[in-house]
Design a protein around this nucleic acid. Structure first.
Lengths: 339, 339
DNA sequence: CTGTTAGCGCTTTCAA
DNA sequence: TTGAAAGCGCTAACAG
């Protein structure tokens, strides 16, 4: 370990190679109009000093960009979102761009601070899984010509590109499948209706029940974590007439529900066929170990990330910069009794 | 959507507020020696234009830094590493720094390119889960005074801070526990010995067997993905004398093994007690659903991320910049029959 | 083919 | 309390 980071500059390289900084710059930018032997000298100096072009300095020059994509997601550790982030990173890397990744913790204040910070760093664009409704930072971003793509959730009134899932359709299809299998007592575990997907998936669920004149009692919403979902599931199972099937509106709720089912089985006193079967919006690792029948409303979060980033990259391209706003709704696939 | 991103500069703010750029700069840096009413004017102009200080421009000035931490991990989508990344992000955010996150895909070439890119962006430091052995980019980084912290894996000959786990100790303890439970036929599923943790965990496993004069046959190594682990597990179970217990050296291998166990149970023809019990290095979501007894050599990847980042932040602090190299080995906790 | 000049957005230093 | 000058690292534009 040594003193603070002191990195060589183009001048030092120039000095060592006995050329002007411009010659170094040209060499490093492809070497047009630089004699091969001079290039050799430059590369040697670069190597000797361990020189790296300062991208931050480059990016402030007119016409240059930062090569940075700002990504704000609600929870990095949630495998769903980390897979999403992988999709973003992968696409961004294809064009040599890097991902600045921040966690919003489902908090609008954090999100705004993060976006502001990203804008200060001159990100070329933003991929956001928004926490709430309006966000002044996002509005400012678009107003300044920084493209924003919303993923998984939209924001009413914010007219930007977005990629979401067919939440209502998937939830409706899944719930209908449960009803057609004979269930009349169907529970619901989901996050808050104030969250875009929460409302849409619940809508699909409720509509399917209504289609069959079933009443939507047995609804537990607002669970953000698997632990909260476990408690809500326990609650449902403790009812006088517990559900014979439970619709889980996202992977946190599915996992929480499965944990409670596993716990009750291990505790004894109940058998598998006394426990409800599950319908999960979102897949997750080890779903195949479910002790009860499990159906999945499936889709690939990595693909969601890719799709969102493709929209963003298109906006970054001069030809498609001014294309009309794209609102993509990705299909989901119902996998009945998927295990 | 409009034209390319054209962001207001400090000059435009100054012009609108009818002051000099310096006054704007001062106001935005805390407002020392700026009259309150002048500050008001500046803030109004900032608000009206939606101005954000250009961090990239700031960072090239002497004494200023980028506020960026470069993080290179092998697989963003692996919940283990995404949880690790969350720990890094959390700690970095505490000091107002952001995380540049890149995926190496367990590929030394990608890793080097990523590190080089990060250095070009003038990251203040690097947190790396290294892919292989030596890496010229990392060496250059340290030589230029950019602190590097290795996490989970070390690189021989690279004298930098690191946080790893007690791989050998944990594997030894876990394997010993299996032996003491009466197992003499213990399988091993792990990644390659060329990977730091792969070798160390295998060493611990092999040493425990040797302690009890058992021979380490039944070893399947080199599985990087859960799918590969599933195949390896199938392989082990198809042996004439299959193992009665299997040591899984990381979460990918544990998950793959469990998938195969689940598959065989569903296919019928085997019962739970004909299948091996598992010892897993790493925990993972839904471990509690394991149909066979499952023990876990547990630790918190988020804590690993935090610890690594704390080391890095210490290096960034003038007082502790030159402290001796720290090589931390975090303890693991053996949870017998954890479910 | 090479170098000089100028300026990107910002802030430290110095002068007023 | 304010501003002008200078320069951070880099590269277009213009000489030569």
């Amino acid at each position: 370990m040594a003193e603070a980071a002191r990195r060589p500059t183009i001048k030092e390289v120039a000095q060592l190679a006995q050329v002007s900084p411009m010659t170094v710059s040209r060499t490093l930018s492809g070497g047009v109009n630089v004699r091969p032997d001079v290039q050799e000298k430059v590369f040697a100096a670069v190597e000797e000093l361990g020189y790296y072009r300062n991208e931050n300095a480059r990016s402030i020059r007119p016409g240059h960009t930062s090569g940075l994509i700002g990504v704000a997601i609600t929870n990095i550790a949630n495998p769903y979102y980390s897979t999403f982030a992988l999709g973003v990173e992968e696409q961004a890397a294809l064009t040599g761009r890097r991902m600045l990744l921040g966690n919003t913790s489902e908090d609008a204040g954090h999100e705004a601070a993060l976006i502001d910070d990203f804008l200060g760093r001159r990100v070329e664009g933003l991929v956001v899984v928004p926490t709430g409704s309006e966000d002044a930072s996002l509005t400012r971003a678009t107003r300044q010509g920084v493209p924003v793509v919303l993923a998984s959730r939209r924001i009413e009134g914010l007219d930007v590109d977005s990629v979401v899932l067919d939440d209502a359709g998937g939830a409706h299809a899944g719930t209908t499948a449960l009803i057609e299998a004979g269930h009349t007592h169907i529970g619901f575990l989901g996050n808050s209706r104030s969250i875009f997907t929460g409302a849409r998936r619940h809508d699909g669920f409720a509509r399917a029940l209504a289609d069959h004149h079933l009443s939507p009692d047995l609804v537990r919403a607002g669970q953000q974590t698997a632990d909260e979902a476990t408690a809500a599931m326990r609650d449902l199972l403790a009812l006088e007439t517990p559900p014979t099937a439970v619709f889980c509106a996202n992977n946190r709720n599915s996992i929480g529900a499965l944990r409670e089912i596993g716990r009750q089985l291990r505790a004894g006193g109940v058998s598998r066929d006394q426990l409800p079967e599950l319908m999960s919006f979102d897949s997750f690792e080890l779903a195949e170990l479910s002790p009860v029948p499990l159906s999945i409303i499936d889709h690939d979060p990595q693909e969601l990330g890719r799709a969102a980033t493709k929209l963003l990259l298109a906006r970054l391209h001069p030809d498609t910069r001014d294309a009309p706003v794209q609102e993509i709704e990705l299909p989901v696939e119902l996998k009945l009794r998927a295990l």
